[in-house]
Every structure is written in C-alpha cells, then in structure tokens.
Design a protein around this nucleic acid. Sequence first.
DNA 1: ATTTAACCGAGACGGTACGTCCCGTCTTTAC
DNA 2: GTAAAGACGGGACGTACCGTCTCGGTTAAAT
Lengths: 186, 186, 186, 186
Amino acid sequence: MNRPGRPAGPADDTAAVVLTAALELLLTEGAAALTPQRLHTVTGVSRTTVYRHWPSPYAFVSALVDVAPVRPGEPAGDPANDLHAEIDLLCDRLRDRPVGGFLHALVAAVAVDPAVAELRRRYVADLLHPFRTILRAAGASEPEAADGAAVIASPLLVEALLLDTDADRGRAHRSADLILTGLVPA
Amino acid sequence: MNRPGRPAGPADDTAAVVLTAALELLLTEGAAALTPQRLHTVTGVSRTTVYRHWPSPYAFVSALVDVAPVRPGEPAGDPANDLHAEIDLLCDRLRDRPVGGFLHALVAAVAVDPAVAELRRRYVADLLHPFRTILRAAGASEPEAADGAAVIASPLLVEALLLDTDADRGRAHRSADLILTGLVPA
Amino acid sequence: MNRPGRPAGPADDTAAVVLTAALELLLTEGAAALTPQRLHTVTGVSRTTVYRHWPSPYAFVSALVDVAPVRPGEPAGDPANDLHAEIDLLCDRLRDRPVGGFLHALVAAVAVDPAVAELRRRYVADLLHPFRTILRAAGASEPEAADGAAVIASPLLVEALLLDTDADRGRAHRSADLILTGLVPA
Amino acid sequence: MNRPGRPAGPADDTAAVVLTAALELLLTEGAAALTPQRLHTVTGVSRTTVYRHWPSPYAFVSALVDVAPVRPGEPAGDPANDLHAEIDLLCDRLRDRPVGGFLHALVAAVAVDPAVAELRRRYVADLLHPFRTILRAAGASEPEAADGAAVIASPLLVEALLLDTDADRGRAHRSADLILTGLVPA
DNA sequence: ATTTAACCGAGACGGTACGTCCCGTCTTTAC
DNA sequence: GTAAAGACGGGACGTACCGTCTCGGTTAAAT
C-alpha cells in the first residue's frame, strides 16, 4: 500500500544541483567552504532546503563520496604491467585534483566533524586496495601485499598531501620492480 | 641609540602561559580548538592580548613550531643501528601524539590559512631528514637516500595521519634492511 | 503573484518590545544609552536581531519619531486662548521629558550620525508649527507668524535644552500677548 | 621652602600643541572626536601624556573654554546701538563657527560626560549676558532685561543649533526695537 | 655637580562594545 | 508534503578604543 502525498527526499534536480555545486566548492575552496550558507548563495537553493536534506557536514561528504567514487583501473592480466599502470593512474589523479583535492578536503573536513574520519579511512583504503589486489595476483601473501602497497603508494600520498610536491613516479616504479623481483625468487 | 618606552613583544610570562596552553589544546582537542576565544577562556589571558601578539593562525602555529621543534635522534655511528633507532623514534612519536597530533594540527590549519602550508612542508621535511642523513652515511647517493627515506617513513605517516592505524614498525624495519642490503653490493 | 515565504520585517511583538524599551532608555538615560548592546541586555532580544532590523542609529531614531510623534493641541477657535494653551502644552512637555528628553536625544544622536540632523530639524519645526498656524489664524502674515512663533517658543527651548532651567511660562505668555496686540491695530 | 625637582604640569609646548589640536578637532569633527586616541594620532604626543594631564572629557572641554572665552562686544554708550551691534556680533559668531561650533560641541559632549552640562550652562549664559547688561543700561528692570535677552537671542540660538538655518538678523533687530520702545513709554 | 621630582614615549594588559558572519531552528506563506 | 523566505537566538570573529600599568630615558629645578 502506497502512502499518499509527495515522495520523501529531495527532488532529483535539487539534489543534483546542490551536490554538483558542493563538489565544485570542495575542490576549489576546500572543505571549510562547504557550508549550507555557501551552497545557498551559490546554487540559489534555499538555506532551509539544504539543511533539511543534508543536516550535517558528514551527510554532505558522505553523499559526495558516493557521487565521486574511486574507480580502480581495470586489470589486463599481467601483474607487472597492471601494477605500473595503477601507479601512473594514481599519480595522474593526485596531480589532477579529482582525487588529490578530494583527499585534501576530506582531511580538512575531519577537523570540523570527527565522524568524517571514517570516510577518510575508507577513501584512503580504497586508494591502496588495487595495489594489494595486483600484488596478491602476482603471488604475494596477504601481509606481503599490504606491505608492498604501502611502500609503493604511501610516498606518493605524502608528496601530494604533505609536501605539495609532484608525485615521484620514477621511485614508485622502481619500488614496484624491486618488490616484484623479490616475489619471484627463481 | 635606544628608543624609549617599554620593550615590544609579550611579557615573558604571558607568552609562556599562552603558548603552553596552546600546545596543550592542540594535542588534546585538535587544531580546530586552537582559537583566540578558546585560549582566552582556558588561560584567562584576555582575548585582546591574544590577538595583539598572535594575530593570525599562522603566527600561532609558527610560534609553536619554534617551541616544540623536532629533534632528531643522535647518531651512534653504525648506520644500520641508527636507522632502526630512528624508525622506532618516529613510531613512538607518532603514537604518543607530540608529533602525530602536531602534524594533524598543521594539516588542519592549512585549511584556514594557506600560509601554514609552508610550515607543514618544512615540518614533514624535518621528519624525513634524519633518514636521508643516515642513508647517506651508509653509502647511498643523494637520490637513493631520498628514495629510501620516503619508502621507509611515508607509510608510517600515512598510517598515522590518514588511516588512524598504529604505525607498522615491522614493515618499516624490513624495508630498512632491504634498502641497506641493496646498498652493500657484496 | 505573491512571493512565498514569511513576510519581511520584525515580528510585531519584537518590534514592540524593542521600540518600547528604546524609548524608555532614551528618556531615562539619554541618547548615549541607546545602543544595540543596551537594548539586548534590557529586552532580552538578541543582539543579532536588533542589528538586523535597526542597523543604524538613524533607523532607530527614525522608528521612534514615528512611534512617538508630536501631536499639536487641538484648536478651539479663539486664537488668543489657543495660543496660551499651546504655550502651556509645550512647557508641560518640555518639563515632563517626552519632548524634552527626545529633543536632547536627537541632538546627541546627530553627533554620531549626521543623517539624524534632518530628523532633528523636522522635529523642531513640528514643535514650532502650531504657533505659526494659530498666529496666521489670528491675522498675521506668513513672515509675521514665523517671527512670532520663534519669539514665543525659542526661549522655552533654549531654557530646557541649553540652560536646564524650567521653561519660563510667564515670559512666553507675555510675549504672546504683546504679539497679539501688535496684530490688532486698533 | 620650594621643593626641588621639575615643576608639575605639562611642559608649555605640550599643552599648547595638544589644546590647539583639540580645539581644531572639536570644531571640525565634533565632540565625539575629542578622545585621547585621536589627539595622540593627530599631535604625535603620546597617549600616556594626554591621559596624564587631561584625564577626563570634562578636563578637556574645561581647558578649551578657558582658551577660547566669549568676549562681549565693548559698549559704546548708546544702548540702542550697542544692542544692535551685539546682535550682529552674535549672528556672525554663530555663522563663523568659533561660537556656533563650540556650542554644538558642548551640547554633544554632555551626552558623554554629564559634568559638562555645567560648562554648557555657563557658556550659554555668557552669550546671553551682554544683552541683559545693555537692556539694564537702557532702563529695564532685572526681570525685564532677562526676558528681553531671551526673546532677542534665543531664536538665533535655536536657528543655529536646532534648525541649521542662518540666524535671522532682521527679526532679532525688530525684536530689539520693539523692546526698546516698550521701555521708553514717553 | 648631584639630587630629585616630574615629564615623556612606547607599549603591555584587561575590559567593553562594536558590527559582521554563520550556524541551526523555527514560523509563515505559497505551490 | 516540498520549497522558499525570513525571523530569531546563539556564538565566534576580528577590530577599536578605553583606562591603567610598567618600563626606560630625559629634563628642569633646588641644593
């Protein structure tokens, strides 16, 4: 039995307009700008409406994470090639903002709402995951794969997030090779 | 020729009281709590005085970096031992907040005042520096040392800052060994 | 087509509470006390709300002038009687503050916001106007009426505003008689 | 026995510089501008020094009243001529600021410091006084003289202070004639 | 020449009010 | 029931001035 009246939740276009603007704001001005007030002035959607549907910072970032998920590169089969491809993919993403900016924003958002920390953890884990998968496919044990992923990807994240340097692909590729050769002792 | 009048800058005790409380706040409640208002209510020093001497977030973080600098462990001579000691030191610091908390705070402060980014870069560079020095002493070339420092320390930073995990010392020590053996071709 | 949403402007009771208190403050403590801060502590209405609706001193005084206008006595027909009645009315008002206090306040408010000068001029002109009207009715020419009004009322204003003396009704009545007799040449 | 040491009170030039600037400020920007802070920025004399010698608004206005006293016109002997001359003198003064501005300022200063009210009263009384003297010399009784002074001078004050109009000399002269003829019935 | 008292400037400090901004909740109206 | 417009209280922000104070260095009289 259907309840009468208008279905709950934001109208589709309202949600689209607001979340698009939110992502835009997040990437250009950082997490601090992601307030109902700002969204109202930017989108014209009324402050009241924004509050109704996304009552907390968490709700926003959470919605955005769903809108802009991290899609891993698709494996071609050869672990070595896949690994190098994944490294390049991550470097590009960190440089071109979609991921780098989002990560920056997530880190900053935690300062405002601690609950976001969980989203940050998941987001970073998602970034590291492809490396682990590929290393497993290459014959590494689970802990070996985790270590390898950390060794390859972490420096890239540190450079992009903490040092504001371009990620050093060369080093990452060398590390990858080193790890792969360590796996096939023959 | 001396100018007349009272010497400029905060009286010694004022500076001490405020900066001590600031560090305390930073480590216990995070960077978001480090506001003039909070410092006033916590220390009793008047809001006006706080603004007078530390008008910007940058001024604060900068003063704190000077108050609580990162002191590297003192090298004992044997590169291998030194490297492992330095790893343990960093892990301890990241766990016990003095460094981990401060780093968190620096990252958050950048969201408010971009000028802090420069302090963050320097702070992180200071964290990585000891590793580079030791690796150079162990016979690595300059780029090799930089790479090695990144490979060893970055995962620790990522775990502490982005994943909220305890740093995985084991992996760090293994990486260190791997790198050291790579250096001595014998 | 009507716009949706709540009608603009302060809710009726808010306006009433604030303006009542404002008038009260004005008359008891003088114009210097008429600040948003004072009104907040006195009425309990939040400082923000006060600023929202009366952003400037001018807005306040202006609203008060509308709330407490100067109502002339109603003419009974006989110019001589009317004139003397009007004199007594003005003297009473100057003594009992409603007008005297308000005038004081207007003068003081000009020091803060020059735009109030216009309100002051109008207010004083409104005070002098009844005298002119009555003198015209008694047969005076327009300039004669203006002069007469000035001669009769000005000393009262000076005494109340500048000398802090009770207005000297006797002199005012004598001046009035003198002027009236000057008008009837017989 | 004289005490040794430097004599108390401000050095002559300090007092001169500050009071000159104070008068200037008072006339150009009104009483609200007459603060230690402003005087410091204008004269370069340190805030501390200003506070030392003129601790209250009252002290300032009081010092200024002594610096710029109201000097009555000198009587020539003939009451009629003297009276008209005095009227012109007052009108000129009200127009040319020295007196008009000062009076404005005095009125405003009362709002800040009620003690100034006494100075205002005296100042206004000093303005009215010449008229009374001359009328007495013309044969008026004391109350008659007071009334006459009020009738002649008050409208001028009201016009200058409350209506921002140029004082109407014509009316004042006519009033004077009227009063003088009333005195010599013969 | 030395006292000695006061001047003077620079600035710290606590306090209060200012005017602004954003937050989060609520109420009123229109669709 | 959604949406818009806006009132409202609350809190922090950063600024400005106030009045008091402490600290140095200077100056002018009286001894």
